[in-house]
Design a protein around this nucleic acid. Structure first.
Lengths: 196, 196, 196, 196
DNA sequence: TATGAATGAGCATTCATTCAT
DNA sequence: AATGAATGAATGCTCATTCAT
């Protein structure tokens, strides 16, 4: 049991390192030796914990995908007005990204379907679920009169999610601005636009 | 001259094919044989036109990067009101992306600095120039009173550009919606927000 | 006939260029394009004159190998005293080398048996004939009492020929010393040694 | 430490095999697979010990070049009469060649400057040092009256060194004659010539 | 006669993976 | 649990060679 725990802890260390390395250099450019070096180990040793590079990628990704969906689910289900929900959802999105930037970066930048098709499919499904929740939220706002009746819920969702996702390519929370503040600005833009 | 033209035309065919293949599978996963096959050729033949895989990537990218910057430049320099400029700029962005989706996709999804550092640097510079133009446009709007005085020009620029860039991951113009229409929706969102 | 002559003349130009290029870069490192460039042509054009790179090598070598043997033959057959014959033979050797340095350089420096076995065998035979003539000359000198009775004819031959051959690695007649002068010094050394 | 020793020992085995293969087939014609096969390994495995084919060549050559120079240095510095020094130097030359024929063969027969310029330069310098020692020895003999005053030290050096070097192309100590015996004959020739 | 274009075989090199220790 | 060593498949690249024009 203690052995098992130690092994599991080490696995976590490795997946974390892998997520970092994969995100930084790209999955294809990253070598197993790079991941191992990050941990002061040798490439061969990783195979004591994982079957393959793809397996390592899968493990690095698998557990953490569910988080964002669950969070958004609870936000949507709450009794807040839609405006508040949108604000909270955007903030939640950026906070998750901020914490797991390396991980989510891989979803955007890697051609995972050519590498780990099963995993890619699973991730895709999660993504669709996430998008559905957003669409539902927007439709709720339109129905309740809080959002403009003429906006296209699906396009709007794509815009908001795309906007949030794009932070992966440039935002670093240690760069002066907090993710919460950035989320506020984004929400302002999305809700009220820039026109005077 | 005719020979030169033919050669140049073939080079263009190859770079186009390369951009497609690189964008689809990712630069690292793409084999020279894939690019060649796209043209009914064999891998070795590509070396008659290009020195290396990296050279092919560079050629595929190089010439076309300047376009977007030039276009935005002329839009910003025009006499339109800022609102119209923003609308036109967003539309121009999406139109360029629609036409060269494969190409611009690579900028987002590949870790080019690890592969072709010089090219990556050059592309980066263009990107910064593009962003500067947007920031200038937003500041102009604030000064003229057309845009809200409290918005942060840089963050707003990042939001708009990120929003437009994110279409690379999902938008296909043959999917029912024209890029012009999508651009209009995006401009509505950016300018006026979603609140009723 | 005129056509044939022109073709033959061109073939000679090509073999000369090939000998030069092969000797300079080594047969394996030399590309057909290098040989062609030496003549302001393209690689493919050489195949109008020669079947293959090996054929080109063979042609470059073939005709000229007989020269040295024939010359030495006539020297040995003459009525001069052995000392004079040795002097003349050494000079002839260096003169041939000086004129066809590129060509003979290839015999020494290339692993021709791994590349053109038939040619290598033919060249080898010529070489043995050449050596036999030298051995005969030395034996003649011993018999006649002109050369020391205790020297080993074969080893002596190897020494003399090796000595002459070694000039290929350093001697250039435009470097200040004439091949005739060098031959004289070599003959002095071979005949009388260096001891006071 | 033991690990390091084992690794180093293996590296030596590989460089030895490489020297053999390179000398036999020529560097360009030799495949990494050939070198590996000589050791019962596969080509890829060599890269665990060396960076590249060129690196392997460099390693094969590097350490062993200094030997001959050092040996000649000590001979020249001794108190023997010049005649004895010359005899010893020739013998040393042939003995080194006999032991490392494969290695030194490459210096003569490969166009190393086109392949590993740095290494070629380094080897060249050693060669010049070696020649300088010989020239010095000959000048010493002339000054002391042991050698003829009229001989040209540099040409004489080239002759002696060239003579010794030429053995690389034919001499094999298991062919009946010992290198020591051959060296003796060469010294007789060099010192006293062949004339009766 | 010469060339531009294309080919395909060959080879160096990389790297995930295995395995005895 | 980890490593050093070895492997083999994959792939970029070179270059002799072919051939239609």
């Amino acid at each position: 049991m203690s052995e098992t725990k130690k092994r599991s802890a080490k696995r976590d260390l490795i997946t974390a390192a892998a997520a970092r390395v994969f995100a930084e250099r790209g999955y294809a450019q990253a070598r197993m030796a790079d991941v191992a070096a990050e941990l002061g180990m040798r490439a061969g040793s990783l195979y004591y914990y994982f079957d393959s590079k793809e397996g390592l990628l899968a493990a690095a990704v698998e557990d953490r995908v569910a988080l964002a969906v669950a969070e958004l689910e609870s936000i949507v289900a709450s009794d807040d007005p839609v405006e508040a929900k949108v604000r909270r959802a955007i903030e939640a999105h950026l906070l998750v990204f901020d914490e797991h930037a390396a991980l989510y970066g891989m979803f955007q930048t890697e051609h995972l379907d050519g590498i780990v098709p099963d995993l890619a499919r699973a991730v895709d499904e999660r993504g669709r679920a996430y998008e559905s929740l957003w669409v539902g939220l927007i439709e709720e706002g339109i129905r309740s009169g809080e959002l403009r009746p003429r906006i296209d819920p699906w396009v709007t969702m794509k815009a908001i999610v795309g906007l949030c996702n794009s932070t992966l390519f440039w935002f670093e929370s240690d760069g002066g601005m907090s993710p919460e503040l950035l989320a506020g600005r984004f929400a302002d833009l999305v809700l009220g636009g820039v026109m005077a």
